[in-house]
Amino acid sequence: MIKYYDRKTKNYQIEKVAGEKMIRWTYSSPVGMKLLEAVVKKKMCSSFYGWYLDRRISRRKINPFVNKFDMDLSIAEKKLREFSSFNDFFYRKLKPSARSIDSHEDSLISLGDGKVLAYEHIDLDNLVQVKGLTYSLKELIKSPAIASKYQKGTCLILRLCPTDYHRFHFIDSGTCETSYRIKGAYYSVNPMALQKVEKLFCENKREWSIFRSDHFGDILHIEVGATFVGSIIQTYTPQHRVARGAEKGYFKFGGSTVLLFFEENKIKIDADIIEQTKLGIETYVVFGEKIGNRL
């Protein structure tokens, strides 16, 4: 059971997890863990499933998925019958009116829809994965020089579950550099998996880039793939200026995670998100929603 905080109702909700029984069995049973290491975490497994979800035959999965999770597709650009495959549905675009972007230049906005955790005054060698498990930013991006810029800064972790909108965006105007790819495994990023696999983010496939924002300094942007995520697709053009809210990229099928690292004394995260993070609880946010301020 995954509990998260709903900012609108100020109440806790229980997340509906796609494939919950299978995830729980895989990451908690001896047989499941052996299967995980031998097959599930491998690129071949995720690539094959991703190939299937790009095919027209996979459209038959859309209706059951939408009905099971009571998804609102009225905010999507395409109608249900217009999706060419399950992946086409999965990384669907939203209507411009679907999300309201806070335009104040001092407002820090969410880069996408999902569950967020926020950590301030971070120790680069002991970043929190879950209680009792940590990892190093140097290991995560394999660049000690870049990592050192974010000592005592702020880390945001946005987890996108399979039912979420799976495109991610720039939180400010500015210029983004080229993305660097790091090969890795395909573990789930579900909290159940994070409790079982040490340094999971450092094990999984990931990409990172530096976004030179106009109002929040140089932001380290990291996308982490997960089980059955066939691809991390970058849609921006490196070194070209972008506006606040412009699309950076999207994930194909699967739960995924985006991490943002800010330099020291650049931002202040909203108190409710920090409070819930200290309790070990994620807060649900949507793209464009204010989640903090510039210092």
Rank of each mutant, 00 (worst) to 15 (best):
D272W: 10
F253H: 08
K268S: 15
M22R: 10
Y12T: 13
T277M: 00
S74K: 06
V31H: 03
K131Y: 11
T235K: 00
I109C: 06
R92M: 03
G32V: 10
R294V: 15
F69R: 03
K68S: 15
D6G: 06
K248V: 08
G292C: 07
L200S: 14
S103T: 14
F69E: 06
F83C: 09
F253S: 08
K131F: 10
Y250A: 14
V39R: 00
I141E: 09
Y91M: 03
D272E: 13
Q151K: 09
L279W: 08
D125P: 00
R241K: 13
S213H: 02
Y49M: 10
I62P: 08
E105N: 12
R60V: 15
G174R: 01
G50C: 08
G153M: 01
G217P: 00
F253E: 07
L73H: 09
Y236C: 11
S188L: 01
V17P: 02
Y135D: 11
H169W: 01
G280T: 08
V66P: 04
E82M: 02
G254N: 05
A271C: 07
F83Y: 15
R212V: 11
I269S: 09
I269F: 04
K138V: 15
H169L: 01
Y250T: 13
F251E: 04
F262M: 07
G153L: 01
K152D: 15
Q239W: 10
I171Y: 03
G254D: 05
V128R: 02
L53K: 01
N126S: 12
I210R: 02
R55E: 13
M33G: 14
E207G: 11
G153K: 01
A226S: 15
M22W: 09
A76F: 08
C176P: 02
A185G: 03
V17S: 10
D164W: 02
M33C: 11
L158D: 13
